[in-house]
Amino acid sequence: MISTNKIYTTIVIAVFTVLLSFQSYSQNWDIPANKSSKNSYIPFNNETAKAGEAIYTKNCQSCHGNPGKANSLKTLKPVPPDLSEKQTQSRTDGDLFYIITTGRVVMPSFKIVLSEEERWKVIAFIRSYNKSYVQVLSKTDPSKSKLVKIVLDFNAKNNKIRVYAKANEASGVVLLKDAEIMLFANRYFGKLQIDKTLTTNSEGYADFNFPKDLPGDKTGNIDIVVNVNDELYGEIEHQEKLNIGIPTDKPALNEQRAIWNTLLKAPIWIIVTYTSLILLVTLVLLYILNTLRKLKKIGDK
């Protein structure tokens, strides 16, 4: 007989386990109201949805599967939702943008990987599965971003980069205050974020601590990328080469002779061994053929 006590304990544990798992995989994302009401300045139409599909296939499909096909990666916990379902479609565009930007545990953050424009295009693709959806466009004028000028100023004394963001309006220069700024260094496999994400101060700049030991190219140049995100002026990207890295001159891996290199750069020992063995066998075979020739000659007599 199993005691009722044991059954009771089992039930309690089971209930708690279920509750706990629900809690950690809740569908509630706690999105701040100002983010939730954000709208896209990119119109969602066939063209942008198509561009979004390409981004989706590359970045999202491996987990979320194809919308409407219920083929998301079931081995993940929580299971990535099918984005064409009501759960997702009932969220605001701002919600989706926030979720994709910040991510949460298994759902990755695409803040650095995808530009704002790309994130909106993915949403355009997700929305294309919702027939009743009507878009509310943001008032942001994307063409305004062209007015913004980013200036970098490196201070060698304290190793800081000061980034100014100003807009050249017809009425004069406007400083971008409270704009979000990210600084990156281009590396071999993508962008390395430098320091934290900062916001510009009342004078329109932010100071980034730059590491003292970041390797640059032969002369110490590093490609710096600045991303500015402003309520009014939208998203601005700026690239610049700065001579602030450690000069590094490492020979490329394929420069020297190596097993993995091309034929012409094969290790000497392999070339020598291989060719001498072939030569040896060929010579023996030629010798044998020659003896056969002799054998025939003897018979001729």
């Binding site: 023996v284 044998i288 056969l292 002799k294 025939k296 018979g299």
Partner: peptide, 24 residues
Amino acid sequence: SLNWNGSLEQEKIILQSTRILAIL
């Protein structure tokens, strides 16, 4: 059969060559 006539000379050639090949 390369004009085989069974002479000692020919036998020696076959024997030697076979030996070399067998080692190789």
